[in-house]
Nucleic acid binder design. Sequence first.
RNA 1: GGCGCGUUGGUCAAGGGGUUAAGACGCCUCCCUUUCACGGAGGAAUCACGGGUUCGAAUCCCGUACGUGCUACCA
Length: 507
Amino acid sequence: MKKVRVRFAPSPTGGLHLGGVRTALFNFLFARQHNGTFVLRVEDTDQNRFVEGAEQYIWDCLDWCGILPDEAPLAPGECGPYRQSERKGIYMQYAQQLVDSGHAYYAFDTAEEIENLRESLKAQGESDWQYGFHTRHRMRNSLTMTKEETEALLSADFPHVIRLKVEGNEMIRFKDMIRGDIEMSTNTVDDKVLMKADGMPTYHLAVVVDDYLMKITNAFRGEEWLPSAPVHVLLWKYFGWEKDMPEWAHLPLILKPDGNGKLSKRDGERLGFPVFAMQWKDTAGKAVDGFKEMGFLPEAFINMLALLGWNDGTEQEVFSLEELVQKFSMDRVHSHGAKFDFEKAKWFNHEWIKRLPSKELADRVAPFMQHAGIETGDKNTFVKIIDLVKDRCTLLPDFIKQAAFFFRAPQHLNLEAVKPKWNDDKNNFFVALIHSWQMMQEWKHDELEINFKEIAAASRLKPGELLFPLRIMLVGDKFGPGVFDIIMLIGKEETLQRVSKALQLLK
RNA sequence: GGCGCGUUGGUCAAGGGGUUAAGACGCCUCCCUUUCACGGAGGAAUCACGGGUUCGAAUCCCGUACGUGCUACCA
């Protein structure tokens, strides 16, 4: 049995999309599960689309998610280099091999010529033109020219590409781990360009050569690649590497929440949710926040992504990375796309906030608090606060509102909620309460509560109708954990100060 | 247009011939809590449509419709 090797092969062209992270995740899970190797290969063969910093960014995203690869440009292994631009020199010989064996040919048609031809045919109502087995004989290529003519053009460095020569009327069959047997006719696949005029390989040549050279055993990619899979299968065959061809798995698409179609960055902006894992700054300096900045825990992000197109068949929905490694299986991945549901994504985060130990959570929350100008101070106290409010927080920034009043008196008191039922009796109660609490030797939860109830009873008022105003005085509004829990944490001095101040305002 | 892939509630989905068609999110109604949450109980699907096969079909087969992807010297 061959050692499992998988690769995530993104193009460094911008922010890392949800779907990309999921592909990386499935690769990671599969590799870990089979004690295999997870490779990150950067597919930067398109020099026009190359974006500075995108590669480091991809690494950072995977790092944040906790699914770093074993081999990558930044962590070289045996099969480097891991950037296709740096492998430029090795593709030509393989393309040449195909030319020599008659499976590829030189084509000298310029992009303009082809475009013009396509346009004119379109005008005649022939819209499905493609450079292929029934048209290649009308074009300028080494199949239609004499050997001498071809040689002359080549030695004169006339711009050219190398195209795959796809024979017609052949059925290509291959197995997809998710969809089972797939069958397609070569009649619908065109003579794909293998080597571009700039000397770079196209995706088609590069994936096959690199997957072979990197000994990839399982190739996972998005469903949008399915139509060109025959090209790749053909390439594996023409190279004579058929027995080493990886097992394919074409992952279902992640669709936009409304309507249909692939989820795009624009949808996120339009509907108000992130699409990238982490913040991406484009070359113009415009930044788009990702799940991280939005306050997602990587545990939740990964969990949510795993369940987008996969489930283990039980009712379990919350999985840790370790559990996913254990339970993930490609044959339970769906063959149809799923609409992205941001509400459900938030639910996953809420679940993870509730589950993560408060001590751990505190470290994740602290940066958000600091960003809001709140110093979290003593860690033990902060952990207690986190423990008290975490049920109420869905995204990490929610902690700012839910916990701020522990650190500073509320800026604004929602007295409107209290005033309608405010009266002298209540006022007198609080005056008595302040007096009594000032005398307290020890500041203990149960004793404070007992004392509170005693004074209430003496004032012939129900504790409930007094607890509510007290909450407003301490928190500023109608939310937060138990009033006495709050009192314990903010302490005697602060408690009495807030109550006194509120009483002034209520006069 | 051609080719591929797909189609169970608003969304994610379990289900692989016989079930009252799970569960989750969201929504709605209650309970708990005189806050907000958490927690708990409940409510809502003629399984795209039409034909078959079968004693019996969400499940198998064939059509149709619809959706989506690809159809670049982009990946």
